[in-house]
Amino acid sequence: METKLEVKNLNAWFGEKQALKNVSAGFKGNSVTAVIGPSGCGKSTFIRCINRMHEVVPRARVTGEVLLDGVDIYTSMDAMDVRRKVGMVFQRPNPFPNMSVVDNVVAGLKLAGSYGKDELSEMAEKNLKAVGLWEEVKDELRKSGASLSGGQQQRLCIARALAMEPEVILMDEPTSALDPASTTKVEELLQQLKKFTTILIITHNVSQAARVSDMTAFFYLGELIELGETESMFKAPQNPLTERYITGRFG
């Protein structure tokens, strides 16, 4: 598999505080990478540099390169175009409460592009099916997106991100606000999604990382300590810090 996403010498700051230190890494296409590390280690900042959401924070700054299919998203792409190609799912489900279930799914297409009505409802159905929500909500498509249960809302948000047909999907602890059954559904979903996209998922749950990911990236104090195949990293971590973290001795 080819490298879909490459990060070279990435540094990020909040004002004077450096949140990411010289991070370089490559991510293969059609894979799931778990991003792990203790709170405040720069995981969220890292993935927010990949869809250019870090730079919108006042006084935030980024240096280095982020290459999507070899194209630098900072110098050769418009921020809006980057965010259409690199989708994001947040920690707390955040469907738009002013929009129906269907309109939530196609919100990005509707508000950022020009699509016909039939095309939009087709896209809505296709993506609701992709996240396994269609059967559950097909009779309440016109209800507010906020009327669904928490787990359904999160899958709705994943469908909303998928509808943009992103090359990469970033997930920031997508299951931490969900019950175990919903968590399982989202985890199973990841295996379907990686067939046509590349996923980076932040998780605080080490066993979730082991379950869902092909690769794991361990961050500590803003540095990428170790990046490797999940299976081998969990069996034999190269760095003693990684070992201490995944065995639960700190973090």
């Binding site: 959401m53 175009d81 965010r83 994001m88 990005g108 508000l111 950022a112 909303r160």
Partner: peptide
Amino acid sequence: REAAMALGIP
């Protein structure tokens, strides 16, 4: 606002 921004909505 973040959710909308992450979708590339102007």
